[in-house]
Simulated assay, not measured.
Amino acid sequence: MMTNLFSIFDPSTNLFNIPLNWLSTMLGLLFIPYMYWLIPNRHFIFWNLILNNLHKEFKTLLGLKGSVGSTFIFITLFSFIMFNNFLGLFPYIFTSTSHLTLSLSMSLPLWLSFMFFGWINNSQHMFAHMIPQGTPNILMPFMVLIESISNIIRPGTLAVRLTANMIAGHLLMTLLSNTGQNFPTYLIFLLISIQILLLILESAVAIIQSYVIAILSTLYSSEVN
Rank of each mutant, 00 (worst) to 15 (best):
E202K: 14
S105G: 08
S177K: 10
L197D: 11
N182W: 11
V144A: 11
S148N: 06
S123L: 13
S96N: 11
T174K: 14
F116S: 07
A159Y: 08
G180L: 10
T174E: 14
L139R: 07
L139F: 13
I153M: 06
Q209H: 09
A159H: 08
L201K: 14
S193P: 00
F189L: 15
T163R: 10
I93A: 11
I188G: 13
Q181W: 08
I208W: 01
T179L: 10
T95K: 10
I146Q: 07
L108Y: 07
N178S: 11
A128P: 00
H170M: 01
S177T: 02
S177G: 04
A206Y: 03
L110N: 05
S177F: 05
A204P: 07
L139M: 14
A168L: 10
S203V: 13
M166E: 12
F117D: 12
M106F: 10
N137R: 13
G169K: 00
L145F: 14
I153K: 08
G134C: 02
M106K: 05
I131C: 06
L145M: 14
R161H: 11
L198S: 11
M106Q: 07
F116D: 04
L100V: 02
L176N: 03
R154Y: 02
F142V: 15
M140R: 15
G118Y: 02
V205H: 05
T95A: 12
Y186E: 15
I138E: 07
F90L: 15
R161C: 06
T174D: 12
R154W: 01
I131Y: 04
T185L: 15
F127E: 02
V160R: 03
Q124L: 09
S96G: 07
L191R: 06
L191F: 03
T135E: 06
M130T: 08
I188K: 15
F189M: 15
P141T: 00
F114W: 11
A128S: 15
N122T: 10
S148A: 08
G169L: 00
I192V: 14
S193E: 08
L172F: 00
A164T: 07
N182C: 05
T157Y: 01
T185G: 08
N151K: 08
I138P: 04
Q133M: 14
F94D: 09
G156M: 03
L198T: 12
A128H: 15
T185P: 00
T163V: 12
I138Y: 04
S123C: 10
I188H: 15
Y92T: 08
S98G: 13
